[in-house]
Design a protein around this nucleic acid. Structure first.
Length: 140
DNA sequence: AGCCTTTGACCAGCG
DNA sequence: TCGCTGGTCAAAGGC
């Protein structure tokens, strides 16, 4: 990382309400806990399916990062989710979907007559366009 | 049986 | 030139 011109990179910080109902997790390893949490938490539905292909702990920011890739073979879109706490997750979108509006998860969910760009736009509106100020300008 | 998730290791790029 | 971090791929296990 260092290049901000690979493709379109969107950032979206969201806060997810914890489910006190199932918060009976034992005192297992923190990592295990967070990891499990990321999986349990319902990430924002972009209307696309993502496949997790990796996860790592970024020391620079002291947060966990999960790497997702669009299920579509013709799609180069990638999603990256990072979180420090179980209630604060940040989703970063990379690239654009080639299967315009071809939502596999929610087919015809409100006549998606728009393209991927619109989807991102919607996300920005929902999550807020604070992606510009959330820059973690490496302190070093 | 198939698909998805998870963990580790390897590689590349940058400082 | 070496070291470190981030990112991706591969393999195994579980559901």
């Amino acid at each position: 990382m260092s290049k901000a011109s690979s493709s379109s990179t969107r950032e979206a910080s969201i806060s997810i309400s914890e489910d006190k109902s199932e918060d009976n997790y034992n005192d297992r390893e923190e990592v295990k806990e967070m990891d499990r949490r990321a999986h349990r938490l319902v990430l924002p539905e972009d209307g696309y399916e993502w496949k997790k292909y990796g996860q790592k702990f970024i020391k620079n920011i002291g947060k966990f990062r999960s790497y997702f890739r669009c299920q579509m073979a013709n799609c180069i879109a990638k999603k990256r989710a990072e979180w420090s706490t179980s209630t604060d997750i940040r989703i970063v979108y990379d690239g654009v979907h080639t299967h315009y509006g071809s939502s596999t998860t929610r087919p015809g969910s409100s006549g998606s007559s728009s393209n991927a760009a619109n989807q991102y736009n919607l996300l920005t509106q929902v999550f807020g366009d604070q992606s510009t100020q959330q820059k973690q300008g490496r302190s070093s």
